[in-house]
Design a binder for these strands. Structure first.
Lengths: 358, 358
DNA sequence: CTGAAAGCGCTTACAG
DNA sequence: CTGAAAGCGCTTACAG
């Protein structure tokens, strides 16, 4: 992700005279220009009425000519309407379509409420999460939606007890009263693993996201639960976790599969992992030999052959619901914390239905 | 995109006693608590020095106890450092991985500068774009990166002449001095079309994004250019454009291909279109029969069979470069507008190398 | 219908 | 080392 790409330019034009940044005009500037008191300008800007049509026209002309835009920060500072009209969204990695679809869902609901979204990626690093949360709070977001990493809540803990409107996605912190929305990670992983076990698989490898992420732990838990229930001990070497790009996962899974004995099935517990593993299996010619089930859906899962069996999530819907929960709280309609867990069921497309080959 | 998904809950718990939102403590609250003047608290908060160690400790204890967080808006209002530390990013659709990867690239550079990103999707609607731009300006973002739709600049025009730091991605507005970064849409589309023509294709259909988007027009232009050069007239029925989800495009392309005569090749000029068309061709059993080249890369393009030939873009890199251009201007290092056009070359993977079947 | 005063939460001058 | 005053750009009260 951090490697820079060398690119050729077709051309690079330097043009002359770019405008230099000017000081933005203020209410007083407009007032001076229109020859009225600044309070009159304020009245016109806010459509308060009680201004003679003549003055309204003069002020509006000045506003247009100077390009005046009210400063929202100053405006809301004194205003009883104490809101900034901005909510924060702290996520793991916006370049992952799972998260960007959540963001899209949040945006959709935010838009209905005339809100905007400040977002930031943590890459699963608790330190970065604390930075983002602190910065968003300092900028006085009216509420936050957070996909937390790590076990320490850090600055979040204080905000929760302060009553800052907040919705957690995926993390279910113990002993904290907070709105929560998540998929049934453990149940989904359990079901997927059971599915493979029923086909006769005994040696199943698990590839998951970094265990700093709560949902990643739940998925591993679901896997372990099903395996234990089947009386199978899972050696540590059959479990790999970390936060990587699809390309990195391709490499990791390739190396893994070069060693004997190979597992007869793999569970790839996140979309980037599923993509990387698919590429690895394909490159090694093992797609019809080793069974695979993924968590999260991926594009073209029906077009590849065999199709990719997955436990899908519904990120757009997660985003919408999370935002709806947040606005319910922002509007004071919600008092007690709500926790919603969405059920996840396996979708069979072929790759998860391959029986053990040895 | 707007259809709501019905979902089952596993459970929905209502817990008691959620904290009620409290008024945030201010400098004066801390001062009262620590029994000092509020200016002393300000000094401690900003690490200005000139405060006795004893008072520092007392103030810090009060800050911790009350959970004080300085209000960034108020802080910067009087401050000579006139910045908000926020940049705006106006894009078409954040649920499209192409745009979310640009956002990730922007975030990466913004982070280095201690900046945060306010973003919003326009869905290619000029009216929504104007709303977003106006709202961001009212919130006093220090600069903006915009992927514009439509031909009218709207509120953007005034901001450019005001000298607001701004970088355009993909739109090259005439007669306006502004930083610009884009791919070589026309050249890439031209090359892709030439590639198909060389194989003997004469009947090539074009599927592209809504022509409200500048880059979509450029891609169509490149296609037309190559076809005209080959002396082929393209009937209007061979060109389809619009902004749709992959599922919608699957439907559109399926219907299209059900009518005779079928084209021998298709050019899918955006990632969602490429995905939808791939699914349609696959469902109809035509993937090895009708040639396809896409603009933008898609996941698993090497795993499907045949592989998907594309003209890739580098969204992460686009985002980084756009942000770097913006910060160069914000830091006053750049005076004259810079225009960068990144070259795009075709990547052959099989689907674009299928000769005409009839 | 119009305006002068006070204040939002903070920083920047300027005093002691 | 500490604090009282003025001001950022606006809104909310309160006068005329």
């Amino acid at each position: 992700l951090s490697r820079r790409l060398p690119l050729d330019y077709i051309h690079r034009i330097n043009e002359p005279d770019h405008a230099r940044p000017q000081r933005r005009p203020t209410l007083r500037d407009v007032a001076g220009h229109a020859q009225v008191s600044f309070k009159t300008v304020s009245r016109v800007v806010n459509g308060e009425g009680g201004v003679s049509p003549q003055l309204v026209r003069r002020v509006e002309a000045s506003i247009a000519e100077l390009g005046y835009r009210p400063d929202d920060r100053a405006r809301r500072l004194r205003n009883t309407e104490w809101r900034t009209g901005v909510i924060g969204f702290v996520l793991v990695d916006v370049s992952n379509p799972f998260f960007s679809s959540i963001l899209r869902g949040i945006e959709e609901i935010a838009r209905k409420h005339d809100y905007f979204v400040l977002s930031g990626s943590t890459d699963g690093e608790p330190a970065r999460q604390d930075q983002l949360v602190s910065a968003f709070i300092s900028r006085r977001v009216d509420g936050m939606i957070v996909v937390p990493s790590g076990d320490e809540l850090g600055p979040l803990a204080h905000e929760i007890t302060r009553g800052t409107p907040m919705v957690f996605v995926d993390l279910e912190p113990a002993g904290v009263a907070v709105d929560l929305l998540r998929s049934d990670h453990q149940g989904g992983a359990y079901e997927a693993t059971r599915h493979l076990l029923k086909l006769g698989h005994r040696d199943i490898a698990f590839f998951g996201s970094t265990l700093d992420i709560f949902s990643a732990r739940l998925r591993l838990e679901g896997f372990r639960e099903a395996m234990a229930e089947a009386g199978i001990r899972v050696p540590d070497t059959r479990i790999r976790s970390g936060l990587h790009s699809p390309e990195q996962w391709k490499h990791i899974v390739s190396e893994f599969l070069e060693k004997e004995p190979r597992p007869t099935a793999i569970f790839t517990a996140q979309n980037f992992i599923t993509l990387g593993a698919l590429q690895a299996l394909h490159a090694l010619g093992l797609r019809s030999v080793i069974a695979q089930i993924g968590f999260d859906d991926v594009d073209l899962s029906e077009v590849v052959s065999p199709g990719v069996s997955v436990v899908p999530q519904y990120p757009l819907e997660l985003g919408r619901r999370a935002a709806e929960m947040l606005f319910r709280r922002l509007d004071g309609l919600s008092q007690t914390p709500i926790r919603e867990i969405l059920r996840n069921r396996i979708v069979e497309r072929g790759s998860g239905e391959i029986p053990p080959s040895w």
